[in-house]
């Protein structure tokens, strides 16, 4: 069987690929001056370029037509939710009522998202939520929109979250900590509801 990957000059295509990937090779002196190696490098570069074009094409045809294939997959996923820890509620004589950590975090997200300029990221309840009265801290990551005053935004968020948690649960909230972990560019004008109209995926023939 012919050793196709061996060059006459003794260099292997693996070495040339590595050189192309990293831009460095202990054998660079040879490669830079060997016509055969240079020809193979040119071939590999063309292959890489064609590969990127092919991938772009593939992605375009994968997203062509309707999104029915993805809708079906996602519909199945919604059946499974994550509850997290159980949080007791004193419900009088009734069975021991409880909320879940997941439901409280979902509530924090809903409260935060209702405020202009705020998008809630990760939210964690630190403390023993399963013990009534134990102090709990709420740690929230926030992606903020440029143009909002961060200190007042944080204050507004803390107050809204605290108020809602006090209404909905019996958690003893020691603190609501807000960390701005991301900034998003402003939205043209005041059209806060028409978010991201700039992505024009359709209209491509």
């Amino acid at each position: 069987m012919a050793m196709n990957h061996t060059q006459d000059c003794g260099r292997h295509i693996e070495d040339l690929s590595d050189y192309l990937d990293t831009g460095a090779s202990p054998d660079a002196e040879h490669i830079d001056h060997c016509p055969q190696c240079q020809a193979r490098l040119a071939g590999l570069r063309s292959l890489n370029a064609a590969a990127m074009e092919l991938l772009d094409d593939d992605v375009a045809s994968a997203s062509a037509g309707d999104t029915g294939w993805l809708d079906g997959i996602l519909a199945n996923l919604k059946l499974e939710t994550r509850a997290g820890r159980s949080i007791p509620l004193e419900g009088g004589d009734m069975e021991d009522l409880s909320a879940t950590e997941g439901s409280v975090i979902a509530m924090v997200r809903a409260v935060g998202d209702s405020l202009g300029g705020v998008l809630i990221g990760r939210c964690r309840l630190e403390g023993d939520v399963s013990v009534p009265g134990a102090p709990v801290e709420v740690n929230i990551n926030v992606s903020a929109r440029y143009g909002y005053q961060l200190p007042s935004l944080a204050q507004e968020l803390r107050e809204a979250v605290l108020a809602q948690i006090l209404v909905q649960t019996e958690l003893n909230i020691a603190a609501v900590n807000v960390a701005f972990t991301d900034m998003r560019p402003p939205l043209g004008d005041g059209t806060r509801n028409a978010e991201a109209p700039e992505s024009t995926e359709e209209g491509k023939q």
Binding site: G84, I105, T181
Partner: peptide
Amino acid sequence: GKLADAPDAVLAERAGDGDV
């Protein structure tokens, strides 16, 4: 609508917290 231009990292954090 806010999720449309949210960066991957924020979406991943929320998804990790159970946000479908």
